[in-house]
Design a protein around this nucleic acid. Structure first.
Lengths: 185, 185
DNA sequence: TCGTAATTTGAGCGAACGCTCAATGTCTAG
DNA sequence: CTAGACATTGAGCGTTCGCTCAAATTACGA
C-alpha cells in the first residue's frame, strides 16, 4: 500500500529519470541529478525504488512500449497507420525516442536480459509491418514481405537516430518516402 | 620526441580503449580498465595522454574516418563501391562500427563539438552518395538525388545499429537491396 | 659509455558515485 | 482522535572515479 504522497514522488522520479536519460544519456544519469529534478532526497528515492537500475528499467520499458502502441490489438493495421504512429511517437515524445535509441545501442553489450527484450520487441514490430505490407501487396510472398519489413524497421531506427541529432531533419518526409519505396509502386 | 617504448604503450592504450568502448560502451570505459587491458599503469597513461577524454576522442576520430575511407579521393566512385566499402567497414571492423554508433547516439547531447563533427561527417557522406546516385541516374535532379542519398545514409546507420545487436542480421543483403531500391529500377 | 630525456612506478588525492539508516514528520483507515 | 503504516530527512558509509607526482628505471643520441 502506498500513500498519495509517495505515488506523486514516484511519478516525479520517473519523469526526472526519463528527461535525464534523454538529456545526458545513461552514463550521466545519477541518483543525485534524478533527486534534484524530482525534488526528492536520496532517502526518499530509496524508499520508493530498490535501486537506480530499477528506475531506469521502468523508463526503458516505457520507451519500448511507446514505440509501438496498442501491441495487443493484432487487428489488421494499415502501413500508413503504423508509419504515422511511429512519426508521432518520435516527434511528440522526443525524450522517449532518445531513450529508445540509447537503449538499442547500449543493449548491444552486457545485459543479455535487456538485449533479449529489445530483440523480441524488434521481432514483434517486424511481424506487424510484414502483415501490413502483405495486406498492401497480397501478391508478395511471405518471406519477401518479411524482408522488406525488416529493412523498413531498421531504417526507421536509423532515421530516428539522425533526427535526435539534427531536429531539422525531415523525418516525416523521409520515412513516408521510404515506406512508399519499400512497399513498391 | 617519443621513445619506441612510449609509442608502443600508446598503441596498446588506443587499442584497449577502442575494444573497451565496443564491449562496454562509453560509460563503462574507465582509466583503470583501459590500463589493465593495455598493461600500463595510470601514471604511464597520463604521461602519454592529457586525459581520458583525449584517448577516447582519438578512437572516435578513428571510427569516423574509417566509416568512409579515402574521403579526399573525390573521384567519381560508384554507388556499389560506396556500399561495398560500408559493408566491409561494419563487418570487418565491428568494434569501430560499434564506436561509431555509440558516438552518433551520445553526440546528441552535451558536446557541441562532437555533435558538429558528426553532422559535418554525415553531410560529407550524403554528398558523396548523392554524387554516386546522380552518376547512376543522370536524369534525377540534384535535390531528388540528395534526398535519396540522405535516406540511404540514415538507413544504413539503422541497419548497422541492428547488426551490432544481432550479428545474424543479413547486413550485406539488406543494405544492397535498399541501395537498389533507393537508386530506382 | 655517459648524460639526459622519456618512461614507469604506485601510493594516494579530492570528488562523485550508489546507497543506508535512525530519527522525524505526515498521512489515512477505523 | 489516535495508532500505525508510510514518507522524508540528511549525514555519511564504502567504493570507485579521473588524475597527480616524486622517485626510480629505461632508452637512445652523441
Amino acid at each position: 500500500m502506498r500513500y498519495r504522497r509517495g505515488l506523486e514522488a514516484r511519478e516525479r522520479i520517473l519523469r526526472a529519470t526519463r528527461t535525464l536519460i534523454a538529456d545526458v544519456g545513461l552514463e550521466g544519469t545519477t541518483i543525485k541529478r534524478i533527486c534534484e529534478r524530482a525534488e526528492v532526497l536520496p532517502g526518499s528515492f530509496y524508499n520508493l525504488f530498490d535501486s537506480k537500475e530499477q528506475a531506469i528499467l521502468s523508463v526503458v520499458r516505457e520507451a519500448i512500449d511507446a514505440v509501438d502502441p496498442d501491441p495487443e490489438h493484432k487487428g489488421p493495421d494499415s502501413l500508413d497507420d503504423l508509419i504515422d504512429a511511429y512519426i508521432r511517437f518520435v516527434t511528440e515524445q522526443e525524450d522517449l525516442a532518445r531513450v529508445y535509441i540509447a537503449i538499442a545501442v547500449s543493449a548491444g553489450r552486457n545485459r543479455t536480459e535487456l538485449k533479449q527484450r529489445v530483440l523480441r520487441h524488434h521481432e514483434g514490430r517486424v511481424e506487424r509491418f510484414a502483415g501490413a505490407i502483405t495486406r498492401a501487396r497480397p501478391e508478395l510472398d511471405a518471406t519477401e514481405a518479411r524482408q522488406r519489413a525488416e529493412r523498413l524497421v531498421t531504417s526507421l531506427n536509423g532515421m530516428t537516430l539522425h533526427y535526435v541529432l539534427d531536429p531539422t531533419f525531415d523525418l516525416a518526409g523521409h520515412v513516408r518516402a521510404l515506406a512508399t519505396e519499400t512497399v513498391g509502386v
